[in-house]
């Protein structure tokens, strides 16, 4: 519950900050909206301090793994190429999966890599590197 409160409070501050820096013309909408959001945030947060339980439990390792996999994809696609990035992302994303063992993860990575290569590179002819650029 504190999480929502802190989250909304931080958010409002950020919004105010951005709002006041804008010139009247283009900034009009963001300022009005920022103020509105801050107000609504308080309206939600204040009563929520006294109650408990609207929050669902966080799945921290799961969240980190999935977000890290997406992050790797964003950073690696250009440099490392489609194949390595896909395989890497699959391995990272599958880390928190309940089943132990490495064999199924490697098989899964291989299947998905081939599948994405077929669908996106061959099927849709998207232009992107498949392998890293080796000099020479």
């Amino acid at each position: 519950m504190t999480a929502i409160g802190a989250f909304v409070a931080l958010y409002s501050v950020a919004q105010y900050d951005i709002g006041s820096l804008r010139r009247m013309g283009p900034g009009f909408f963001p300022v009005v909206l920022g103020a509105l959001l801050a107000g609504l945030g308080l309206m939600i947060a204040l009563p929520a301090w006294h109650r408990a339980g609207e929050m669902r439990p966080f799945d921290v390792p799961q969240a980190l793994a999935v977000l890290a996999a997406i992050g790797l994809f964003g950073l690696g696609l250009q440099g490392l190429g489609l194949a390595l990035t896909t395989a890497g992302a699959v391995l990272i994303a599958s880390l928190p999966a309940p089943r132990r063992g490495w064999r199924w993860r490697l098989i899964l990575a291989a299947i998905i890599t081939v599948l994405t290569w077929l669908v996106f590179k061959q099927g849709l002819q998207m232009t992107m590197p498949v392998w890293p650029d080796f000099p020479g």
């Binding site: 999935v66 977000l67 996999a69 997406i70 992050g71 994809f73 964003g74 950073l75 696609l77 250009q78 896909t86 992302a89 699959v90 994303a93 599958s94 999966a97 899964l108 990575a109 998905i112 599948l115 994405t116 996106f120 849709l124 998207m126 232009t127 992107m128």
Partner: peptide
């Protein structure tokens, strides 16, 4: 299923305008 979905989401977003920045934005 889900690692495949993660990868497909990334590539789908990339396909819109060939932007790695957009994939990072998804994260």
């Amino acid at each position: 299923l889900y690692p495949a979905i993660v990868v497909f989401v990334c590539l789908g977003v990339y396909s819109v305008r060939g932007s790695s920045f957009d994939i990072a934005a998804v994260a």
